[in-house]
Nucleic acid binder design. Structure first.
Lengths: 229, 229, 229, 229
DNA sequence: TATGAATGAGTCTTCATTCAT
DNA sequence: CATGAATGAAGACTCATTCAT
């Protein structure tokens, strides 16, 4: 377990590249460097296949340096994913009924737009969110359940509100199920168009405007009591 | 010295008639036994955490015996998932325009029903399909892409047909995107209600009728040019 | 964590030496083989410096084979030491006062002789007992405390008995302290003469008869109320 | 640009007198500070389990500072132990035969007393001496061998002298073996009563007078040709 | 067919030591 | 003198897969 150098300890390490430590660090914090490299590794190889070696090689740091900033491979993943979940959550705001507030539909649209903004800007993290974190372990399952649960609550809340306002049809359809459908349609859209492919590869690009329109229109038309005029 | 081919995984010989002693001992063929145990292990622990030891312990066989029937851990998973994908695919039939055929809507509804039949009866496999196989490796990604691609093709085909028949609104919405939404809503519904929980646990149970109605109604109302009469 | 072979699994391992597995095993059980090699490693390098690699190299087995028989490096050590403590303990018998029993002094001498028998035959294990296990960790400390505690109890018991029989001087000396001295003199003798040096190296050899005589005589003369006639 | 020292952790400076800043900061020199902290760490966790981090944390210094004063972890241990060995050695003086010298027995008693003085005052170092340094590595083994060898020489010398003076029985008992017994009894006494337990815990306390009496009496009665009058 | 002992490549993690500032 | 970020060698342990019987 413990290293037993036994002797001298004169083991001068030559730094292969000329850059000084400080120089390397200045560009961006080591921590961020590791996070970035880890994200790349996770996206390219998947959580399990990505090794610490992949991460540190990508970040051009030594093995020990990794553990200086993170407790384990799992911890980096957790930070990447957790941070992303937080950022997405923060961008979703409950529909406001204040007198001067925009129409519920407009608010919904704005929410979708903001979420898609975040998602579009983080293709790599989408891979973690929608693929790597799925079924990873009980802990992450719980984390995701909570996250999606909050989103479902939000959507269902909006639907219930709409029903009370007479804007959403109030037949016998369970609003929780409806909310699930709405969530699923967005997830799948993101899954098909905002995962994996590095931006600019031309394939799988998502037309943002079209996407928002599809999401809103598709969902609303199915939900609104009567077609919009 | 003729060496018996060592790997392979010979097909289980079915013996519908007077079963031999040997046959009796394995009412359920060794192969099926292993598949079942593997499924349990994968569901309970996840693909990576499930070990060969888990599988053979569950199947009460020796380590070597496992490799008599399957080339690797991956191969069992592949067979479980592949078989499931095939069974689901087989249950989806293109919408028929034959003169005496039921209405497209009825056909759609029938398709959804058949798919939900299969899904409801295989909660464990749903876990593999929707969680374990996701992001496992490039190969499975490809397999799933193909599978979902075929489903999308089917749905999009139905939508396009509906447009030509004047039943589906033909505004500027991309039918591929619409199809993606439809697929996503079903996936999420299944994910929320038909994954994980062992059947009969009362919690998370899916009301089949309600589900079909939600799926059909929610999706059609959003897609049909005018509300159904 | 999990190995992801990704492909074939065709990785034929050639066995460098000609001997078949079975042939190698027959000589002595794998378990014993590992224990022996581990003992050698611990004696030659000390617990910490001895690596699993040392152990498996010495036993000519693969890394995994080691873990087939022992949970960890610590576990092998524990088994070696624990077994030794047990064997020594079993050889010490309480002084009997039965009518026809030998004289207490003879019984004592017999005990010492039996213990030295065991110790003489296990020079390597003495190194573990008197050097490697000392201060290893709280758990071993406890184990040793218990062991030596039992020995002290035994010795003190004999002294107390001797006092009651009028054979041992009963001045104000604490018998626990006296027992500690007795134990210590034996430990040091063993430490100086029965540790480390492989048998037959000529140096540090212990003249068994002389040793027993010294131990008995030295201790008794100091303990007995009056010098033996 | 003068940088304000950013960390600190410096010892709370009481400053009753006029000592300079520097002097004040290190009432106890950095070196001594490190030694003290290292001793604590070694005693509490053992040599291997004690990390440089433990040492520098305890001493409230930076990692690099440690290496300013010591070449390695081993070096600190070496200094602690070596110094202790030296101090003990210095306190043992050969039995003098000068005309006016005290009786050999008195001299012996004085020696034992002085050694116990040192040992009693350094419980922590006893742990290093009797437990941590044992079986650490070949080098320390040698150091200890030498140390105990010198003690044995001293004791044996006294015994031989005693024999020549007719005070020690001169039967066929090897004086080296006898000396070993004497050494062992002292070591064990110390080991049982002066190791580990922090002073003042009430338990395991050694009654100094009783101890000296036991050591002297026990050993002499066993060694002297006839019981003391 | 069936068995299970044996294999060893691959992974994570620790920690004494260095050195640029 | 002091600092603490960075280093990387070294070690323990896992587990899918093989193969002699």
């Amino acid at each position: 377990m413990a290293r037993v150098p036994k002797s001298d300890g004169r083991n001068p390490r030559k730094r292969p590249d000329g850059r000084s430590l400080r120089a390397r660090r200045q560009r961006k914090s080591r921590r961020a460097q590791v996070l970035e490299s880890a994200l790349t590794a996770f996206v390219e190889k998947g959580y399990h296949a990505a090794s610490i070696t992949d991460i540190i090689t990508g970040a051009s740091i030594a093995r020990g340096t990794f553990y200086l900033y993170f407790e384990s491979k799992r911890a980096v993943f957790e930070e990447l994913l957790g941070g992303y979940l937080k950022r997405i959550s923060e961008v979703v705001s409950r529909v406001s009924l204040e007198p001067g507030a925009p129409s519920p539909e407009a608010q919904l649209s704005a929410n979708v737009n903001r979420v898609l903004d975040v998602l579009s800007a983080n293709q790599g993290l989408n891979e973690l969110l929608l693929r790597q974190a799925v079924g990873l372990d009980a802990d992450f399952d719980h984390k995701l359940d909570e996250f999606y649960g909050r989103l479902l609550d939000y959507i269902q809340g909006a639907l219930d509100l709409g029903q009370r306002m007479g804007m959403v049809r109030a037949d016998d359809l369970d609003t929780r199920l409806l909310a699930t459908c709405v969530l699923g349609s967005v997830k799948e859209l993101v899954n098909q168009y905002l995962v994996g492919d590095r931006p600019g590869e031309g394939e799988g690009e998502l037309d943002r405007d079209m996407a928002v329109r599809v999401i809103i229109s598709y969902n609303l038309r199915g939900i609104l009591q009567s077609p919009v005029a």
